[in-house]
């Protein structure tokens, strides 16, 4: 019996690609992670450096947006103080789902060297964090690696599960 096999992958073949919805959506999500410009302290400078000419964050699809409404990830770059804590919560609530948080630098992870009365001991006390990036301050390369890891995480998730709003509590 003759086999009528069609090689879709042949060049000039049918303009069809077979994939799952998950992969398609996640492909889109992971490659256009728009970040909120949320430079709080020293790490914010490294965040700017990774967006600037040498490190060029744009090639990851990561473009910095000033408004939380347009942002997908919040890179908490710097020390979160008690006075600022309510605003980070507010900005996080204003971001649209799906949203992710990278906590950049030791201060954001655990309070770091500022073990004082005025610093929040880790942003995870206020908002849920997806990725902790160690370093004081982390180099731009490591921030880019963190974004790559986050992309990996996003690709492994189910895209059309019922979205449970992320909350700490």
């Amino acid at each position: 019996m003759a086999q009528h096999q069609v090689n879709y992958m042949q060049d000039g073949g049918l303009p069809v690609a077979l994939t799952s919805i998950d992969k398609l959506v996640n492909w889109g999500r992971s490659n256009s992670l728009w970040a909120l410009t949320y430079g709080l302290a020293c790490c914010g400078i490294e965040m700017m450096a990774s967006g600037a000419s040498r490190y060029d964050f744009d090639r990851f699809g990561t473009i910095f947006r000033a408004s939380p409404r347009q942002a997908d990830i919040m890179i908490v770059a710097g020390t979160l103080t008690k006075k600022h804590a309510e605003f980070i919560k507010r900005l996080y609530d204003q971001m649209t789902e799906p949203k992710w948080v990278i906590s950049m630098g030791s201060c954001a992870n655990t309070g770091g060297m500022f073990n004082t009365y005025a610093t929040v001991q880790g942003v995870d006390r206020v908002i849920p964090v997806d990725l902790y990036l160690p370093g004081c301050a982390p180099r731009p390369e490591s921030l880019q690696y963190a974004v790559m890891l986050l992309q990996k995480k996003i690709r492994s998730q189910k895209a059309i599960k019922t979205q449970k709003p992320k909350r700490l509590m």
């Binding site: 302290a41 710097g78 301050a137």
Partner: peptide, 29 residues
């Protein structure tokens, strides 16, 4: 005051050499 991290208080609880890396985080440019 949104970035008040209590450096002066930290200095009172640190030996002089210990405080040196903390000064880095003042004017971090």
């Amino acid at each position: 005051g949104y970035l008040h991290r209590g450096m002066e208080k930290m200095a009172e609880n640190m030996i002089y050499n210990e405080f040196m890396p903390t000064t880095d985080r003042m004017d971090y440019i």
